[in-house]
Design a protein around this nucleic acid. Structure first.
Ligand SMILES: [Mn+2]
Ligand SMILES: [Mn+2]
Ligand SMILES: [Mn+2]
Ligand SMILES: [Mn+2]
Lengths: 224, 224
DNA sequence: TATTTTTTTTAGATTTGTCTAAATAAATAT
DNA sequence: ATATTTATTTAGACAAATCTAAAAAAAATA
């Protein structure tokens, strides 16, 4: 079955919102898609007849098994294209989301399988997010919030949960990216900001808000 | 300015049809786009208000300077993606047109410039067609006699030197014309006849005399 | 030239995806 | 429990791109 870009965007947005709250609201979806609640209701009815989701008026929406499968295919395409753009074409990791938003709707199945091989079967995209395999299986990546990282323990950034342009701009300014190695020097009581040390650079201080969106992996016994 | 995929397909089709006959007919366009003449008339009116073409009812259509520029941008994208698919992802040259038909509508200008550089600024696509540069200039492709075409190199008939009735009759019988895409499978020593493969048709054998009158273009840029 | 055929346009519908404004249901507060 | 606020759906409209059937113009033929 082939679906319009618009429908695919809905399915993907529902999938992501479902990670937070088990059932997705009309307003939440409208916000995520920058559209109006009335439009969402219209579309949900169409997607329901196509059996991509379960929907009862006023009761919210949940993806069906088929809907989840479709969502994972789109996410796979999105993340593989992002990887291509950064690793092969030299884009910055903050520029690629918008372009991948279009590329993810290219329909050829064979294209994406060959792209995957060409890229060397990457496990994560440039933002550290896992790339589902051809069967829609997501590799598990253990990660903890930077807020929970103990002091003076070397750690490595593995993902960034907020991928807004403004956030990515701030990260770039602070020279923080996926794979950046750092440790926490101290925490300030007043505003909970963190002084951190990035390998080979002077100490900087980042806000609690920023730290909350950074996820790291580390070795509890001392090595990242 | 950004245009829908549908509009871009119209502009591209008009551009190609214009190569043959200076003014393009509603029916011809409908045939090329696998749509109905009534739909073409509707669209031509819209494209006219956008100043992409000159159109007077019953008088056919011609691209404006702006329309031509747009067409060349789309053709550039189409051919660069085809090159990518064949050279980087290992697709066969007969599989890529359909996929490029979608990829050509991805809007990022920066993407296509970086792709061009990544591919090594290729001059022709896998079918031997020239790739317009960023300013919409088409590189001149040297044309050679079919006799001089190396084996297994995709090429396109660009001219026919003998235009006698008998010659054209033979060409029609063999379904060969301007624009026909082919490659040489083998050359027979005995009479120097050529076995050739025409896209989408069974192999045929043609005489040396016929081949001597067919001129082709192909990508001569150093590839094996 | 008159007639017939072909080409093109117009009229009126349809589908998809969106919107605003109004109605209704659900949740919250008094 | 009633009133108010918030969330959601419905009603009706619109733009884009398409279609079929009918009308009109242009071209070809007799
Ligand atoms: Mn998208
Ligand atoms: Mn990403
Ligand atoms: Mn296309
Ligand atoms: Mn081509």
């Amino acid at each position: 079955m082939k679906y319009s870009s618009s429908k695919e965007n809905y399915i993907k947005a529902i999938f992501h919102l479902q990670q937070e709250e088990n059932v997705v609201s009309t307003n939440g979806l409208a916000r995520a898609l920058s559209t109006k609640p009335a439009s969402v209701t219209d579309m949900l009815k169409k997607l329901k007849t196509q059996k991509l989701l379960q929907y009862q008026p006023y009761k919210g929406v949940k993806l069906s098994a088929e809907g989840k499968k479709l969502a994972l295919q789109i996410i796979r395409k999105h993340r593989l294209w992002e990887y291509f753009l950064v690793e092969k074409l030299g884009f910055g990791w903050e520029e690629v989301h918008e372009i991948a938003e279009e590329l993810e709707h290219i329909s050829s199945k064979k294209l994406i399988e060959r792209l995957d091989i060409f890229l060397g079967l990457p496990k994560t995209d440039p933002h550290g997010d896992p790339i589902p395999d051809g069967q829609g299986r997501m590799p598990l990546i253990e990660q903890t919030s930077l807020l929970e990282l103990p002091h003076n323990i070397p750690a490595k950034i593995v993902s960034v949960s907020n991928q807004s342009t403004s956030m990515l701009e701030l990260l770039r300014h602070n020279k923080i990216g996926i794979g950046t190695k750092l440790s926490i020097i101290r925490r300030f009581e007043f505003d909970h900001s963190l002084e951190i040390s990035i390998t080979g650079q002077p100490f900087i201080t980042i806000s609690e808000q920023l730290a909350a969106n950074l996820y790291v992996s580390y070795d509890a016994t001392g090595k990242p």
